[in-house]
């Protein structure tokens, strides 16, 4: 048997070297029965993960549990400087894409028709392609209506990307409705101001023919994209 101290070291090393998040089960499988008591293995690993997690409290990286398992990541506090170091600017997503994604998140499984009905405009092929290519949504079946349209749902990759463990980590629709009420109380100054800001940064994606419609790679504007009505 390997002592707990060493197991902590091994788990940490493996997670540091791992390319993608790892589940407890996958970590357990790295040990043979002489190294780790199989009966208590899962608990041993979980304890080790907890110790590792707390040890990084004061450092710039953290051990995070996301949908696909545990992973190390740089804490958000440092993203600004890490971003400066990285040459590629992070992709920015347009409102059309985020709204489409939000519909899949909250109404899944949905068809393309459902998305169009909710947004009141046609969905550009580019947006669906981007969401599928990023692996954030996938087809989970076909709706039994004429034409048998594909039904879309979100994926683990979506949760991983947005630092979530599961969909329950997202605000519920009821919480969003509270936001609506709050917006009304706070008045409409917000609305016009936000629209003014958005003139600088938002692209139109109604037609959706251009890839820039989705990936807003323009980095000249220092305005952080702030969506109207989302100051909650």
């Amino acid at each position: 048997m390997i002592d707990q101290e060493k197991i902590i070291g091994i788990v940490e090393a493996v997670l540091l070297a791992a390319e993608s998040p790892m589940e407890v089960k996958e970590l357990v499988e790295l040990f043979n029965s002489e190294e780790l008591d199989k009966d208590t293995a899962a608990k041993t690993i979980r304890d080790a993960l907890e110790v590792i997690g707390s040890e990084y409290d004061r450092r710039s990286i953290e051990l995070k549990r996301v949908a696909s398992g545990y992973r190390f990541q740089v804490k958000q506090d440092y993203s600004e400087w890490v971003g400066r170091m990285l040459k590629d600017r992070p992709p920015r997503y347009t409102r059309a894409l985020l709204e489409t994604l939000a519909i899949v998140v909250y109404k899944q499984p949905v068809t393309r028709g459902d998305i169009e009905e909710l947004r009141g405009v046609s969905v550009s092929q580019n947006i669906m392609r981007t969401l599928l290519e990023r692996g954030w949504i996938k087809t989970v079946g076909q709706k039994e209506v004429p034409g048998r349209p594909a039904l879309y749902a979100t994926t683990k990759e979506f949760l991983d990307y947005f630092d979530l463990r599961n969909l329950n980590d997202l605000p519920e629709i009821s919480e969003i409705q509270e936001l609506v009420v709050k917006e009304i109380q706070e008045g409409n100054d917000e609305v016009s101001r936000e629209v003014a800001v958005n003139i600088d940064v938002e692209d139109n994606e109604e037609g959706g023919q251009l890839s820039e419609d989705i990936l807003d790679t323009d980095n000249t504007s220092s305005n952080v994209v702030s969506l109207p009505l989302s100051n909650g």
């Binding site: 540091l16 990286i61 990541q73 740089v74 992070p90 994604l101 989302s230």
Partner: peptide, 26 residues
């Protein structure tokens, strides 16, 4: 639609990889 719009706004604010969080390169 308003709910979706706000949900989209909430999604935009959630910390996400590449922008707010970075994976390690060890």
């Amino acid at each position: 639609y308003e709910e979706i719009k706000l949900a989209a706004g909430a999604l935009e604010k959630i910390p996400r990889l590449e922008r707010d969080l970075h994976l390690l390169s060890v």
